[in-house]
Design a protein around this nucleic acid. Sequence first.
DNA 1: AAACCAGTTAATCTACGGTTAAGCTTTGGA
DNA 2: TCCAAAGCTTAACCGTAGATTAACTGGTTT
Lengths: 216, 216
Amino acid sequence: MKLLLVEDDRELATALKELLEGEGFRVRLALDGKRGLDLALSEDFDLILLDYFLPSMNGREFLKRLREEGSKVPVIAITVVSDVKNKVDFFQMGVDDYITKPFHFEELLARIGAVLRRYAGIEKAEVDLETIRIDLNRKRVFTEKGEVSLTSAEYLLLEYLVLNRGRFVSREELLERALGNYEAEGNTVEVLIHRLRRKLGRDVIMTKKGLGYRVM
Amino acid sequence: MKLLLVEDDRELATALKELLEGEGFRVRLALDGKRGLDLALSEDFDLILLDYFLPSMNGREFLKRLREEGSKVPVIAITVVSDVKNKVDFFQMGVDDYITKPFHFEELLARIGAVLRRYAGIEKAEVDLETIRIDLNRKRVFTEKGEVSLTSAEYLLLEYLVLNRGRFVSREELLERALGNYEAEGNTVEVLIHRLRRKLGRDVIMTKKGLGYRVM
DNA sequence: AAACCAGTTAATCTACGGTTAAGCTTTGGA
DNA sequence: TCCAAAGCTTAACCGTAGATTAACTGGTTT
């Protein structure tokens, strides 16, 4: 397993590198964003660990360029504070997972393991419903008519419903758990459900007044 | 409400403790798994918050030992992995809920509330009657012909009758306890019973004049 | 700076489902 | 076997949860 660690704090970087190598990973180190990007594009890595607040090039910029070049390498972002408004913003950038500093090394290992497993396809990767099929790894959704393109929020909502299929999920739970929005206000969920139904068909998601939404 | 917080990160632990105490909980703190387990087994707690990645004893081990000793205290796991595979594992280990770091305090509060409520209530599972089967967790009802869709009020009525099966329940009791309507007026219950009978079959709910309704 | 995209908000519309009402049927005591 | 009271059935009513549509906003792209 070949990892790329992009981290400007030399001390932390070398410490992490050694620890990861102790776990059997091969680790390349880049002390700034530009070099990191060059490396990421010129070599094949299984995973990139990216400090999100690099002085030279921040994580957002890094990710944008990386994805523009067509790279699909999974990325775990290292952030300082969870100042991200909600999950949508974050995952929209193409991050697979994130961890907040300071963290325990075990936590990082667990996340690396989870992401790698996800990408290796060891995890259950697909869910087949009556009329739709969902690729959980690639985050793609297919109907009888072919693939449909969902926005981030639409996808998160659908995924949550599918992973909890069989039971009714309340609007509040969807807002909080699926979208990560804790100041539940407004009818966002209703609008997103409506859009999902338009794309997937009317009968994939059912409503029960007072209980919430259910798939299947 | 007495909580046990098992968390080795001293900073996070004390912060959480204070926040929880601010919410009116009594909180005991254990900074490692062994001490946590001792406490859990020697005192009565309403709920345990367990960091799943303790250095000394991990969550799995903790839970195994806890349950081996016969404790039925509900446990909320604090974890960093967020994949579904583990969700199943967790619940198999006897975890009631879990929350992934980093989390908002409000979310933790919500989950604590949910678990406590669940435990305060009647134990729920599945009830099999002669002709119908009821999944109390998912609020779903099946007859020989397949699933029937009940409205909220219909379901509440049926659930109450089933949980009190064998005895006659008066119209007033149903209205007040099952539906929560304390200004008993009109014949709502009769209409709902009628609709239930139409959906479930005539012989599931029987009437005794002057006494009320009964499910066997 | 104009156009675009995606999530949220706001305003309006719809219909679900609990309630009411009115007439019908069954029960069981005299 | 009568007949009131209790319960059943049906249809209509209507408030509100949810659906729908369009406009808004902040960020990003051209």
